[in-house]
């Protein structure tokens, strides 16, 4: 089901906005990357769906596959590093399709000439640790070294595969469904942003980067078929994840801003920088759409899990305003737009 909102033609030059996870990136995928690749047969999910991963039929089960390239500056940030990010990102994308038992990961690495061995060792220790937490491992890989200046340090690509009996899309919402978020939002994006020297901030923020397949498994066990849509609010944050779910499901969402868990320090850093925590990346969270009948059971299951203690019910689906996300601020209402382009600090 295609998102029918206006997508403009891709510009002559690819600027940074095309990597920011919003409308511009969808335009790029749709007009260039997914163009002419056809549809996936047998009820599976292909690139054109722009979901978190692809789904292919194998007999009466489903193979879920997803891939993600990771670059982050700085490579080590409070709460994690690029290695942990590379594992969590891919494991979580599988989990968002309902595939919470990853069979294995692949890991391809491009390294810049001159990169320190010690740093690679630390990053790979972190990859092993994250694999342990997710209950998976890396089974194959690829290595390239490029000349100095030809890339910035390190690029890690991971691909994950998993088999599942039932998969979950990001478009299964209907009016009356409830929306849950599995914990506080904005932690990763603002933690990484606050480490940048030019912002001159000193703050105790930590990324939430973690594989959450175990958490999602617990939710699926409690909610079963009642969990009808999932998405991990990475680039573009909660706002973009909700906008995509609303658009693809053709329902309106009403979100209670005060119910959305945000840590005080994250809120304060966001205020100072003029950046909305709802628009920045999370790397250990999920947004779930559930039937009203199972909402409490799923919420309870999430909160019992150590990674889901701050889980909260944040809103409902309505039949008005399909594709729109309405935010109740406590003062009034506004539309919650998705992130557009790079986020830049404001001047006043």
């Amino acid at each position: 089901m295609r998102d029918l909102r206006f997508l403009r033609p891709v510009d002559e030059r690819i600027t940074l906005k095309y990597g920011a996870g919003g409308r511009a990136m969808r335009a790029l995928i749709e007009q260039i990357f997914a163009d002419g690749l056809g549809e996936v047969d047998d009820g599976g999910v292909g690139l054109a769906a722009m979901d978190d991963g692809a789904v292919l039929r194998i007999g009466d089960r489903w193979l879920v596959i997803t891939t993600d390239s990771h670059v982050v500056q700085p490579r080590f940030f409070p709460g994690g590093d690029i290695g942990r990010l590379a594992v969590a990102g891919t494991v979580n994308d599988l989990a968002m399709m309902g595939a919470t038992e990853p069979l294995a990961l692949t890991c391809a690495t491009i390294v810049e000439e001159g990169f320190a061995r010690e740093e690679l060792e630390r990053i790979w220790a972190s990859i092993r640790q994250a694999c342990l937490e997710a209950g998976t491992t890396v089974v194959t890989g690829d290595t390239k070294v490029m000349g100095r200046g030809e890339l910035d340090g390190l690029v890690i690509n991971t691909t994950g595969v998993a088999i599942t009996d039932r998969f979950v899309r990001d478009n299964g919402l209907r009016p009356g469904d409830r929306l849950l978020v599995t914990g506080t939002v904005g932690d990763h994006g603002l933690a990484v942003m606050a480490t940048r020297n030019e912002l001159a901030l000193e703050v105790e923020l930590a990324s939430d980067v973690a594989p959450i397949n175990g958490l999602v498994r617990a939710a699926l066990a409690a909610g079963g078929d009642g969990i009808v849509a999932m998405k991990d609010p990475t680039r573009g944050g909660l706002a973009s994840a909700l906008a995509e779910m609303a658009g693809k499901s053709r329902v309106g969402l009403v979100i209670d801003e005060r119910a959305v868990p945000v840590k005080d320090a994250v809120r304060a850093a966001g205020e100072l920088l003029g950046i909305d925590p709802l628009l920045v990346a999370n790397e250990g969270k999920a947004v779930m759409g559930v039937r009203a009948a199972v909402a409490d059971a799923v919420l309870e299951a999430l909160r019992r899990h150590p990674l889901g203690r701050d889980a909260a019910l944040i809103g409902v689906c309505i039949d008005e305003r399909p594709g729109a996300v309405v935010l109740e601020t406590g003062f009034g209402r506004r539309l919650l737009g998705e992130a557009e382009g790079e986020l830049q600090p404001r001047i006043c």
Binding site: V254, A259, G315, V326, R333, R334, L335, G337
Partner: peptide
């Protein structure tokens, strides 16, 4: 933020 689309009419709250 949808300054213009009138959000006063939406019946259901979060």
């Amino acid at each position: 933020y949808g300054g213009q689309p009138d959000l006063r009419s939406i019946r259901r709250g979060a």
